Simulated scan of single mutants.
Amino acid sequence: MAAIKLYGVPLSTATMRALAALYEKGLEFELVPVDTSSGAHKQEPHISRNPFGQVPAFDDGDVKLFESRAITQYIAEEYNDKGNQLFCPGNKVVKAATRQWMEVEGQQFEPVAMKLTFERFYKPMFGMSTDPAAAEELEGKLGKVLDVYEKRLGESEYLACNCFTLADLHHLPAVHCLMATDSKKVFQARPKVSEWVAKITAREAWAKVLALQKPH
């Protein structure tokens, strides 16, 4: 049995983020399903793993974490010698840039992108109606963030540097969901952003994450 355990569900964007890091590193792990449809994430034993009643949660021996970005950073640093580098090797400038763009994802991109993902992706999935006005407003806000990305990606192949890092990986769940909706136009309207999306979503590790969502 794998020492590493990830508690979550493959359709959860936060779980997907942690899964991507595990696959990038080629680590053996056990994905322990949490039945969120029955509210198991709000009850014991899961509430002891994640006190906010959310997924994922993570165990690696005596290391027990929740919050997907904390999990991905632990994986990248603890297993630095395994699989693909998620902190691009380089000087302090490169390392600082990686941290900076990870913050940009969490503070600037994610809040807008996930609201738009709810409107465009999850509402139809759950038989709810999308609010067109809200979606349009959110697309405008996301477009302003992506204008900054477009400029940055004209200077660097990936967000932090010329290597794929956690700064890119953290975007994958929301990008994947939005590219399956009409909101893909916000990405496609920006050539450098569109190229970047194509590159990060074509990674082998990401294909493995998506494979977990297919019914067996």
Score class of each variant (00 low, 15 high):
residue 193 V to L: 13
residue 122 Y to S: 11
residue 21 A to C: 04
residue 117 T to Y: 09
residue 82 K to G: 05
residue 195 E to T: 14
residue 195 E to S: 13
residue 148 V to W: 13
residue 119 E to G: 06
residue 95 K to R: 10
residue 47 I to P: 11
residue 107 Q to S: 09
residue 105 E to Q: 10
residue 47 I to E: 05
residue 57 A to P: 01
residue 16 M to V: 00
residue 181 T to Q: 14
residue 184 K to D: 11
residue 134 A to W: 13
residue 4 I to D: 03
residue 96 A to L: 07
residue 216 H to N: 07
residue 103 E to M: 09
residue 191 P to D: 10
residue 36 T to C: 03
residue 51 P to G: 07
residue 56 P to Q: 05
residue 132 P to T: 04
residue 156 S to G: 00
residue 124 P to S: 13
residue 48 S to C: 04
residue 25 K to D: 11
residue 54 Q to M: 01
residue 22 L to Y: 09
residue 94 V to R: 09
residue 182 D to I: 08
residue 207 A to E: 15
residue 142 L to S: 07
residue 2 A to H: 07
residue 123 K to H: 10
residue 36 T to I: 13
residue 81 D to C: 02
residue 78 E to P: 00
residue 58 F to N: 00
residue 53 G to F: 05
residue 116 L to K: 08
residue 164 F to P: 01
residue 73 Q to P: 02
residue 50 N to H: 13
residue 146 L to T: 15
residue 145 V to R: 10
residue 52 F to A: 00
residue 214 K to D: 09
residue 127 G to D: 11
residue 112 V to C: 03
residue 213 Q to E: 08
residue 117 T to W: 12
residue 131 D to W: 11
residue 128 M to H: 15
residue 16 M to H: 09
residue 7 Y to W: 05
residue 199 K to Y: 02
residue 92 K to C: 04
residue 29 F to I: 03
residue 150 E to N: 07
residue 30 E to Q: 12
residue 36 T to Q: 09
residue 184 K to Y: 15
residue 117 T to N: 10
residue 181 T to P: 15
residue 195 E to C: 04
residue 169 L to A: 01
residue 179 M to H: 08
residue 7 Y to N: 02
residue 163 C to I: 03
residue 16 M to K: 06
residue 107 Q to H: 05
residue 209 V to T: 02
residue 76 A to C: 07
residue 203 R to I: 02
residue 39 G to V: 05
residue 171 H to K: 00
residue 55 V to N: 03
residue 70 A to L: 01
residue 72 T to I: 04
residue 134 A to M: 15
residue 99 R to L: 09
residue 74 Y to E: 01
residue 101 W to V: 07
residue 36 T to P: 04
residue 7 Y to P: 06
residue 14 A to Y: 14
residue 70 A to R: 00
residue 198 A to H: 15
residue 114 M to C: 01
residue 155 E to L: 07
residue 160 A to G: 11
residue 103 E to Y: 10
residue 153 L to E: 01
residue 120 R to I: 14
residue 97 A to W: 08
residue 193 V to F: 15
residue 190 R to P: 07
residue 93 V to W: 12
residue 73 Q to I: 03
residue 205 A to C: 06
residue 87 F to I: 13
residue 208 K to W: 14
residue 157 E to N: 08
residue 130 T to H: 07
residue 187 F to S: 09
residue 196 W to E: 06
residue 187 F to N: 11
residue 133 A to D: 14
residue 28 E to K: 06
residue 77 E to Y: 13
residue 149 Y to S: 03
residue 182 D to Y: 08
residue 37 S to T: 14
residue 145 V to D: 14
